[in-house]
C-alpha cells in the first residue's frame, strides 16, 4: 500500500533581527506551554507545535497507537551546555537539566502530551527527510498504520560557533536557525508518497555533486534542503538546479534536520491534484535522501 501525507505543520522562525544569533522561533506565550514542557528546551516546544499543526491539518486527533519518528541534529543543545557548565563549575550537574539533554527527550514530551503510545524512534541526523522516509517505510511495510514524522532543532550560539568552523553557517548569507516541521504519514491524504530513498553518506563535494544526478521528472515541483559545503555541492549537482522552487534554508536558516522535513511539508502543501514533486535533502555531514510525491 502506498503511504500518503495526511497532514502537515511547521514552526517557522520569525525573529530575524540578529542574523548572527540565528533565526529564532518567537517564544511561546506563558500559559500556552503544557506543564510537562515547563523545564524543556525550545526544541521540544517547536516539535510539539509542529506536531499539533500536522494533526490539525489532517483533521484527526492523535491516536494512542500512532508511531513517531523524530529527527534532530543537535537535540537539546542549550540544556547540554547549561548542564556541562554546572558540572564544570561546581562538579555537580543539575538533575533537572540532564534528562533534557538526552536526544529522545523532545520526542518523549510530544508522545506524552499527545498521548501517543506506539513506537517512538529518535534519529540523530543531518538529513531530516530521512524521518519522512522512515515513516513511509513503516506504513508501506505494515509496521504502523499512522506515523508522525517530525524534525526539530534549536539554535544556540555555541553550536553556531562549531557550525561556523565547518562553514555550515556563514555570516550574512546563511544564518543559524531553528524550528520544526511535521508530517502525518498514513494512507490517503493530500499527497501520495511514490518513492523514497536514502543514499550512503557522502564525504566530498565532488561526490555530493553526483548523488542526485538522476534528477527529477519533467514538470516536477522541486523542494530541497542543502546544508553546509556538502549540501551546497549537492544542490549544484542537481540537473536544473535553478528550478528549485523551495529551499528550506531561506525560511529556517541552517536548522539541521528541520530543512529536509520542511521541504517535504512545503511540497505536500503546494502540489496540485495529479501533480508530481520531488524533495531532496543533503546535510552538512553528507546524509542524503529523496522523496517523490504525487498530489491527490
Amino acid at each position: 500500500m502506498k503511504p500518503g501525507i495526511l497532514g502537515i505543520g511547521w514552526e517557522v522562525p520569525r525573529d530575524r533581527a540578529d542574523p548572527d544569533a540565528g533565526w529564532r522561533v518567537a517564544t511561546a506565550e506563558p500559559g500556552s506551554v503544557p506543564p510537562r514542557l515547563r523545564r524543556s528546551g525550545a526544541i521540544a516546544r517547536h516539535a510539539l507545535a509542529a506536531a499539533r499543526a500536522a494533526y490539525r491539518s489532517a483533521g484527526v486527533d492523535p491516536g494512542p497507537g500512532d508511531a513517531i519518528v523524530f529527527a534532530t541534529t543537535d537535540g537539546g543543545i542549550a540544556h547540554s551546555k547549561k548542564f556541562f557548565s554546572g558540572l564544570s563549575a561546581d562538579g555537580c550537574g543539575s538533575p533537572l537539566l540532564f534528562p533534557e539533554t538526552v536526544y529522545n527527550a523532545p520526542c518523549s514530551h510530544v508522545a506524552a502530551v499527545l498521548g501517543i503510545g506506539g513506537p517512538a524512534l529518535t534519529l540523530v541526523t543531518d538529513d531530516g527527510l530521512s524521518a519522512v522516509c522512515e515513516a513511509a517505510r513503516m506504513v508501506a511495510g505494515g509496521f504502523a498504520a499512522r506515523v508522525l514524522a517530525i524534525a526539530a532543532n534549536e539554535a544556540d550560539p555555541m553550536a553556531s560557533m562549531a557550525h561556523r568552523h565547518w562553514r555550515v553557517v556563514r555570516s550574512g548569507t546563511n544564518p543559524a536557525g531553528e524550528g520544526a516541521a511535521a508530517l502525518l504519514v498514513g494512507t490517503g491524504g493530500m499527497a501520495r508518497v511514490e518513492k523514497w530513498e536514502s543514499g550512503p553518506p557522502v564525504r566530498t563535494r565532488a561526490a555530493c555533486r553526483e548523488i542526485f544526478k538522476s534528477g527529477f521528472p519533467a514538470g516536477a515541483l522541486v523542494a530541497g534542503s542543502f546544508s553546509g559545503p556538502l549540501g551546497r555541492a549537492a544542490r549544484r549537482g542537481l540537473p536544473g538546479a535553478a528550478g528549485v522552487a523551495f529551499d528550506a534554508s531561506g525560511v529556517f536558516g541552517e536548522a539541521g534536520a528541520v530543512g529536509g522535513a520542511a521541504a517535504a511539508v512545503w511540497l505536500s502543501g503546494h502540489l496540485e491534484a495529479g501533480g508530481c514533486g520531488v524533495v531532496f535533502s543533503c546535510g552538512y555531514a553528507g546524509g542524503n535522501s529523496s522523496l517523490c510525491l504525487t498530489g491527490a
Binding site: 541534529t73 537535540g75 538526552v102 536526544y103 529522545n104 517512538a120 524512534l121 529518535t122 534519529l123 540523530v124 541526523t125 543531518d126 530521512s130 522512515e134 536514502s198 543514499g199 550512503p200 553518506p201 564525504r203 555531514a285 553528507g286 546524509g287
Partner: peptide, 25 residues
Amino acid sequence: LPQVPVNDVAHALGIRAPVRIVSNA
C-alpha cells in the same frame, strides 16, 4: 555528532550503505 564516527568507521572498513542513527536513550 553521532553520524560522523559511524561514517568514519564505514569508510575505513570500505562499507558504502545508508546510515540510520537511532538515539532512543
